[in-house]
Amino acid sequence: MQRYLLSRAVQSVLLLLGVIVLVFFLVRLTGDPARLMAPREASAQDIAELRALMGYDRPLPVQFADFFSGAIRGDFGNSVHYRAPAMALVVTRLPATVELALSALLFAVLVGVPLGVIGGSNPGSIWDSLARGVGLIGQTVPNFWIALIFILVFSVNLGWLPSFGRGHWNSIVLPAVSLGLFPLGQIVRLMRSAVLEIRGEDYIRTAYSKGINDRRIYVAHVFRNAAIPLVSMLGVQFGYLLGGSIYIETIFAWPGLGRMIAESVAARDFPLVQAVAVFTSLVVVAMNLLTDVAYALIDPRIRYDK
């Protein structure tokens, strides 16, 4: 197992270095980031000054070396907009986003796992239809749209739940449910098909041939095996949640990383954009690594190297 986890850890570090390179080049896609950053009415001289100020006038290799050595220390320079170190700003926004993403994931898992499992265990039943329906909704209803509908229904019309901010305990309900809708659909679909497939495995037939009853078959044999694809999906979904939070945090004025991405992109605040991008990727990569650990703990085929 150690060897497996070590190699995954090394891969993760390489991946992050790759992200840093990618982020460096992304903002330079047009060749001149200073022009994008400057206000529309800025004169050629203003732009040149900005270019010099940001160091964008230096030779590319010098810029890269500078950026790279800063980035691996977490230093992305000052945010243009806030005039403060970009990374520090990003870190202060992290808790709100983690809170939102985990709540959304919790919602998706708590609803999605039982629904998918019940549907998959009773193919053709009404629960199965429900599971398939929820799976389809999750894939066809955009989260930014359902967020607007929720605000309309639960905040504007019914006045039950707040539509913005992170002040009250119940402010998180609408954002979390909106954000969790897509993972919910994915989890329902996955669990349903995993249970359906595992039911037909040879080892389930073996378990039946021993005289084990349905309940124990499902609890001890089916669900345990279905947990493996679930765990690997949770890692994937976390990345999606951070992406989806760009919309959801913007709509609900949730003070997290997603909103900071939208704002810094809109303001062309490139140091901040780069800091958020690298940091978000770091969180995602770390989550995937955690998933691998969990995966190894569940699956003995990985836990014990042959």
Partner: peptide, 13 residues
């Protein structure tokens, strides 16, 4: 006793 011993045992138990 089934034909395929590779798939007839639960891999997680």
């Amino acid at each position: 006793v089934f034909q395929d011993p590779m798939s007839s045992l639960n891999p997680l138990m």
